[in-house]
């Protein structure tokens, strides 16, 4: 019982600030405004300032990290992002982000796809991705 309680507390603490927005190393941006970040994850801002494609990677809607990033960094609920993406996809006015199935796949995709942006727990970040500061 106590063990379960402790796990809960740990998950909460982890959810707060133990993650970062990461990009492919070829993205020259080091910092981004919160508005730009939201536009990117809403799939309306499609290019980096130098004109190259932004490629957005996300985990599934009910993933712990996805929820933490939605609420903590983007300040929206996962269901709102989902309905924004669905509107774009099924009206033909935009695309959905690419869904990855695991943290490992997220790291791999962001590290190897030019223009990629995604998110990772700090513990999983390595030198193959850049960490983006959000102003």
């Amino acid at each position: 019982m106590i063990f379960v309680g402790l796990l809960g507390v740990k998950a909460d603490a982890r959810a707060n600030d133990h993650f970062e927005i990461v990009t492919n190393p070829n993205v020259s941006e080091v910092a981004l405004s919160a508005n730009s970040l939201r536009s990117i994850f809403s799939m309306s801002l499609k290019t980096w300032p130098n004109g190259t494609k932004i490629r957005v990677f996300v985990l599934s809607d009910d993933d712990q990290l996805h929820k933490a990033v939605s609420k903590g960094k983007l300040n929206v609920f996962p269901y709102q992002l989902r309905s924004t993406w669905d509107r774009l996809v099924f009206s033909g006015t935009g695309q959905a982000p690419v869904r990855v199935n695991s943290i490992e796949e997220m790291l791999d995709k962001v590290a190897n796809t030019p223009g990629a942006i995604g998110y990772l727990w700090r513990a999983n970040i390595n030198e193959n991705v850049n960490v983006l500061q959000i102003k």
Binding site: S33, S39, S44
Partner: peptide, 16 residues
């Protein structure tokens, strides 16, 4: 249902 050619002429931060 739809067939769309969509070109973004201008994009800067949240403005498109």
């Amino acid at each position: 249902d739809y067939a769309i050619f969509d070109y973004q002429l201008y994009a800067h931060e949240a403005n498109q």
